[in-house]
């Protein structure tokens, strides 16, 4: 998880650094999803050429194209959540910094600045709640993405089976199916890494 009181204890990786790493992974998955879309278009053309023997392969390729679009959309949702999280973490860090500076006020001055201290504590609570909100949203979208990618994985594996029935085009269809499989495996690894980062 992203530390709620980011910036207050620099012992772990900072929340901002984690967000940057999450965003880099998201960009990588968006790139992979685009690649799967292009591959599925090529696969559809190939299946058309192969005719009746590659009807199943064509259906799966079309499903993979839809999967890639869905994945791209979900990853863009994740990007929006990381932007919200980034803003919340930054404001939280600012409120925490003000809090740390105000703690240094001597007791008599603290009494005079009482309203100010209370407001800052209130603000820190609000910021913390915002961080928790965005963190929860990120986690929830990520779990949906995991399910989407599992579907993509099943589709990619199925293309390998369908490729076998491609007659004279079987070797070419198998090559495409292997590439689908490799791309989805890469996406699954990236999503696992994202889940790990999100728990930091």
């Amino acid at each position: 998880m992203i530390p709620a009181h980011a910036g207050s204890k620099p012992t772990k990786e900072s929340a901002l650094r984690t967000i940057v790493r999450i965003n880099e992974q998201i960009k990588a998955v968006i790139g992979d999803a685009f690649r799967v879309r292009m591959m599925s278009l090529n696969a559809l053309i190939l299946a058309k050429r192969a005719g009746q023997s590659a009807v199943g392969f064509g259906v799966l390729s079309n499903e993979l194209r839809g999967f890639a679009s869905e994945l791209q959309g979900a990853m863009q949702g994740l990007q929006e959540s990381t932007t919200g999280l980034l803003q919340a973490v930054t404001l939280n860090a600012r409120a925490a910094l003000s809090g740390r500076i105000l703690e240094r006020l001597p007791e008599r001055a603290q009494r005079r600045a009482g309203g100010m201290l209370a407001r800052n504590r209130h603000r820190l609570d609000d910021r913390h709640a915002e961080v928790v909100h965005w963190r929860g949203r990120l986690a929830s979208i990520l779990e949906e993405v995991v399910r989407t990618v599992e579907l993509g994985n099943v589709l990619a594996r199925s293309t390998r089976i369908e490729a076998v029935y491609g007659g004279a085009h079987a070797p070419a269809l198998t090559q495409v199916a292997v590439e689908f499989d490799a791309a989805i495996t890469h996406i699954r690894q990236a999503i696992e890494h994202l889940r790990h980062l999100q728990r930091l």
Binding site: L97, I101, L102, L105, P106, R108, A109, R112
Partner: peptide
């Protein structure tokens, strides 16, 4: 600066109400 706010505020508070 931000870092010296407590020292400035406290010193003023000894002389008059910062309000």
């Amino acid at each position: 600066g931000l870092e010296i706010f407590p020292a400035v505020f406290a010193a003023i508070n000894e002389q008059l109400d910062p309000s």
